[in-house]
Amino acid sequence: MLMTTIGRGLRHLAAAACNLGMGLALGLIPTLAHAHVITMGGGGFGSGFEHPLTGPDHFLAMFAVGVWGAQMGGRAVWSLPVTFPLIMVLGGVMGILAIPLPGIETGIALSILALGLAIALAWRPKEWIALFLIAIFAICHGYAHGAELPRAADPADYAIGFVLATGMIHLIGIGVGLALSKPLNGRLARALGLIIAGGGVYFLIV
């Protein structure tokens, strides 16, 4: 019943979410700068909320999690988007504690590529496999933000803003995924996956 209610609510917003999500995804891919660095003494709720929206690599990954969950259907519609921020907290703690974890930026780029390809191929693995992959990607993204969190003027407000923005991006991805799951037998969703994967390739080579 919960899944039915969520699905119905998201479908009412699907058209608007599709336009917004597609526009943001396509517009952010060419952005040259990774918006990762918080200026010393800066950063509160507004900065935290803005950060995932202006960091194209993070945006694409979080957006793709929502799209992939919607494409997989069933429990994955909510289990993937819920798991990502929860595990991201673990990565954030590792970043705050400065625990050595090499290759974070590469891991972030690979997460975009892998999620994009999963959507493009309409890959529907067992849920635990998808969650395992999501968890690995979430650690990379969480670590990147955790490493910069101590430099924020108000770390608690920054973290709250970031989490809320992350949830919003997941919801946009779910809405877009649901909207594109039916037309042309899901080919539109798969085409979007290729665009996301292209973003991953871009971040790997820049």
Rank of each mutant, 00 (worst) to 15 (best):
I38H: 04
L101I: 08
A109C: 12
A114Y: 02
T83F: 07
P52D: 12
G167D: 08
A64N: 11
G193I: 02
I104N: 04
A33F: 07
W78T: 10
T54M: 14
M40P: 05
G146E: 08
G69I: 06
A152M: 13
V206L: 14
F132Y: 06
R11W: 01
V37I: 14
G21C: 06
H58E: 09
L113K: 02
G198D: 05
I29R: 11
G167T: 07
L171P: 07
A109T: 07
F132V: 08
I96A: 10
I129S: 05
P85A: 11
L121V: 03
G7W: 03
A189W: 00
G198S: 12
M22I: 13
I6S: 01
H34R: 14
I108G: 00
P100Y: 04
V67T: 06
N185V: 05
H170S: 05
L20N: 13
H58C: 06
S47F: 13
A17P: 03
L178T: 02
D57H: 03
P81H: 13
A120M: 09
G41E: 06
E127W: 04
L131K: 05
L192E: 01
A76C: 07
M62Y: 11
A76D: 00
A33C: 05
L110D: 03
G41K: 03
G23R: 10
R8E: 03
T166M: 13
G200T: 10
C140F: 15
F162A: 14
G186P: 00
I38R: 05
L60R: 01
S181Y: 01
I139L: 14
A98L: 08
I6K: 02
L113T: 02
V37D: 11
I29L: 13
K126L: 07
G91W: 09
G186V: 00
W123P: 01
W78V: 13
A179E: 03
I195S: 07
L131Q: 06
A61E: 05
L90Q: 09
L90R: 10
G107E: 05
H34T: 06
A159Y: 12
